[in-house]
Nucleic acid binder design. Structure first.
Length: 289
DNA sequence: ACCCAGGGTGACG
DNA sequence: CGTCACCATGGG
């Protein structure tokens, strides 16, 4: 990996195991949009709007200040060696089928509060609609960011969201999740420190997240994996359920304990590998064709 | 009209 | 502990 910063363009070259498009579109993050006219991705991360484009093994980000270089490398999880993870998948009789289509996926290191609210919204919902609700939430009460004549909105602060009314949240499409969003934002605004969950063991951190209304087992695991550094948190949604059934249980439905046992056997990076399985399941439209 | 989507809550056994 | 009706919303 080679890093260069010039004229606010951050160029990261000689990348291995990195596919920007798959990583932005795989449903882990909801604030990246593809700009077909420019063949690039526009995203908002930590109140910074950025244009990202990949050509071969080179990734370019604009704008980027010297002080932001480390933040972007961390966000895209470029400090982690994915070659070993992909080798693990490739060497598995069960999992190797996922690799051809999913190779290059990276698990982004997102903001805990944004991830918490985003995945409360994700419950019993689909990715396109989730993105729309979040985008309208940001426009409603997020800080405006202007870059190159275009307007973006940062993800709102806990205070800004907790100051909203349930009616406002329903108006942007949040539906029955509106009170969950309000109560959760209120708790964080009052000082609940989500970052403390990074240092806890998986089980304790999970129990803590389950105390938030609107957060169940699956959403908790998404928050742990996508924003709290728990690489062994393994979210199970309908897609993963189908994929695991096919890959490990001869297309039959395992008990919860049987599934947990398999996940444990995948190891300390099971969560990251889950992302490859999820991509495979959606790409191959498991159970839908 | 029915089914589905990165499911969770609350009630009831 | 497990099961299950119900929950807003838009697209297929």
């Amino acid at each position: 990996m080679k890093i260069d910063l010039k004229d606010e363009v951050l160029t990261i070259s000689q990348l291995k195991c990195f596919d920007l498009g798959k990583s932005c579109s795989c449903g882990q993050a909801f604030r990246w949009g593809y700009d077909a006219a420019d063949d690039c991705w526009l995203g908002v991360v930590r109140a910074k709007a950025v244009r990202a484009a990949q050509h071969g093994d080179t990734l370019r980000l604009f704008p980027c200040n010297a002080g932001d270089v480390d933040m972007w490398l961390d966000y895209f999880d470029l400090y982690r060696d994915y070659s070993g993870i992909e080798a693990l998948i490739s060497g598995s009789e069960r999992l190797s089928v996922c690799l051809p289509c999913a190779s290059g996926i990276r698990v982004f290191r997102q903001e805990p509060f944004e991830t918490l609210i985003s995945f409360i919204i994700s419950a019993n919902n689909n990715i396109k609609r989730i993105s729309g609700i979040i985008e309208r939430l940001c426009a409603l009460c997020g800080e405006r960011i202007s870059v190159g004549g275009r307007n973006f909105f940062a993800f709102p602060s806990p205070e800004a969201i907790s100051a909203l009314s349930a009616e406002q949240l329903i108006k942007i499409g949040a539906g029955y999740r509106a009170p969950y969003i309000l109560e959760t934002a209120g708790r964080v605004a009052k000082g609940y420190c989500l970052s403390d969950l990074k240092g806890m063991n998986l089980s304790d951190a999970r129990s803590e997240l389950l105390r938030f209304k609107g957060v169940g087992p699956k959403v908790a695991d998404c928050i742990l994996l996508f924003s709290l550094g728990h690489t062994d948190a393994f979210p199970v949604d309908v897609w993963i359920g189908r994929a695991m059934s096919e890959l490990y249980f001869n297309s039959e439905t395992p008990t919860k304990h049987e599934l947990e046992s398999v996940v444990k056997s995948i190891g300390e990076y099971s969560g990251i590998i889950q992302q490859y399985i999820f991509y495979y399941a959606r790409e191959s439209r498991l159970g839908k064709a």
